[in-house]
Simulated scan of single mutants.
Amino acid sequence: MSQTVSVAKMKSHLSEYIAKSTYKKERFIITRRNKQVAALINIDDLHLIEQKEERMGLASLIGKWKHFDEIEESLEDIPNLRKKGGTGRDVSL
């Protein structure tokens, strides 16, 4: 669960919050005038978020292109291919 901290408090105790984020894996939501504006998370959490964004890249396009049903079928099979350790089909140009 994330803790809410004002920008002013974060500025005055930044090194303390960085240490808590790094070593205790705590997360902080930074607010300005009671509005959420940013977050402080540890680097491992950032890497997880970035990996999830990368994985969702192609999958997020399903249904947005006309006449590309085969893409959806291929994407549905990705988890099975990953489990098998297969390389999938050759898509090089």
Rank of each mutant, 00 (worst) to 15 (best):
K25I: 01
D77P: 01
H67E: 07
K24R: 15
A19R: 15
S15I: 11
Q36A: 11
D44Q: 10
K20E: 15
T4N: 14
S21V: 05
D77S: 07
V37T: 02
E72C: 10
I43K: 10
K20T: 10
M56G: 04
A39N: 02
V37A: 00
R33H: 13
S60T: 08
N80K: 14
Q51G: 09
D45W: 00
I62V: 08
S21W: 04
K35F: 03
K9T: 15
G86E: 15
D45G: 00
K84E: 14
H47S: 15
L46M: 12
V5D: 10
R89F: 01
E72D: 06
D77V: 04
H13T: 11
G85I: 08
S21P: 05
L14F: 03
A59H: 07
E50D: 08
V91A: 09
E16H: 13
T87P: 00
I29K: 09
F68S: 06
R89Q: 06
K52T: 13
Y17N: 01
F68K: 08
G85C: 08
E54T: 12
D45T: 12
E16G: 09
S12D: 11
Q3H: 06
I30D: 02
E76C: 08
L46G: 07
S92K: 03
T22F: 08
I43R: 09
V7N: 09
T31K: 10
K11V: 04
L93A: 06
R27L: 12
L61S: 05
E73L: 13
K83S: 06
I41G: 02
K52P: 00
K64S: 11
G85L: 06
K84F: 08
I43D: 09
T22I: 10
A19Y: 15
R32I: 06
V37F: 00
T31Y: 03
H13G: 03
G85P: 08
R55H: 10
R27P: 01
I18T: 04
R89W: 02
L81V: 14
S2G: 00
A38K: 12
S74D: 03
L46S: 07
L61G: 01
K20I: 05
K66W: 01
I62H: 02
K64D: 02
T4A: 13
A38D: 15
H47D: 15
K35A: 12
T31H: 00
P79S: 01
S2Y: 05
E26C: 04
E26R: 07
T22Y: 12
K66Y: 01
I30A: 03
E54M: 13
D45K: 09
T22G: 07
A19C: 11
S12Y: 01
G86C: 14
L14H: 00
A19T: 15
H13E: 13
E76L: 14
S60F: 07
S74Q: 06
D69N: 09
T87G: 14
S92E: 07
R27M: 14
E76R: 10
V91C: 11
K64Q: 12
K35D: 08
L48P: 00
F28V: 06
A59K: 09
R33Y: 10
S74K: 05
H47E: 15
R32Q: 13
M10C: 13
L40Q: 00
